[in-house]
Design a protein around this nucleic acid. Structure first.
Length: 212
DNA sequence: GGTGTGATCGTA
DNA sequence: ACGATCACACCA
């Protein structure tokens, strides 16, 4: 059993590394949104995916900088938020060095605090596991949209917190979701907390258990 | 539990 | 034309 410590916000240097290294370290970290309109929202991350740049055909940054992906090339510890399928927002944590595109997509989380406010934003959710079990749901529950693209996780109002709960040991690595053929769909760059009910899709073909 | 399909619009 | 998706229908 991991003993909780005094919660501390992750520092800029924590994000300054490759997305493949950072992604599994984000599991079980707490994402907090101090939302001026509804108060504090907090969730524990249970599913993430690593994206890279010029060597990753699944990445928005594969073909170089564009107006949309600019923050992916910026300094680490900021959010990259984009509009997906005409209906949903998806949230990434930018990592690596400035000039190098590297980011981690936040795909699933367990609601901890502000659950009533999350339900108000996600009326169709029947169970608590419907609130944040997918990238679009997570963004909607936390009230995130384009206006949060570029937001600084070190300054807030969004922060990532280490409350002493370590990443799972082992974690599970599987193929990334939603990539068509030829887009790096075989890479095991999705990381999940095993058996957590807030993981967006339980089918894990080709998944491997992974020591951190 | 699983699979299949339509909605919807910014981006390249 | 095509998505780093979701919800709902339907089958099991």
């Amino acid at each position: 059993v991991t003993r909780p410590t005094r919660p501390r916000a992750l520092s800029r240097s924590f994000y300054a590394r490759d997305s493949l290294e950072l992604a599994p370290e984000l599991l079980n970290k707490v994402l907090v949104h101090d939302d001026p309109s509804v108060g504090r929202l907090a969730v524990r991350l249970v599913e993430v995916e690593a994206y890279r740049g010029s060597d990753d055909p699944g990445s928005h940054a594969f073909r170089g900088p564009t107006p949309r992906n600019t923050t992916m090339f910026g300094p680490p510890g900021h959010l990259y938020v984009y509009f997906s399928y005409g209906t949903h927002w998806c949230v990434n944590v930018v990592c690596g060095d400035p000039g190098v595109a590297s980011a981690v997509l936040l795909r699933g989380a367990a609601p901890l605090e502000g659950i009533d406010a999350m339900r108000a934003r996600r009326v169709r959710a029947r169970r608590d596991t419907d609130l944040c079990s997918g990238p679009g749901k997570l963004a909607q529950a936390l009230g995130l949209d384009r206006s949060f693209d570029g937001a600084d996780l070190v300054r807030g109002p969004l922060r990532l917190i280490d409350d002493g709960v370590a990443p799972p040991e082992p974690s599970v690595a599987s193929r990334r979701i939603g990539l068509s053929e030829g887009r790096g769909e075989d890479h095991l760059w999705r990381f999940v907390v095993p058996a957590d009910r807030n993981v967006s899709r339980t089918r894990l073909t080709g998944a491997v258990s992974r020591e951190t």
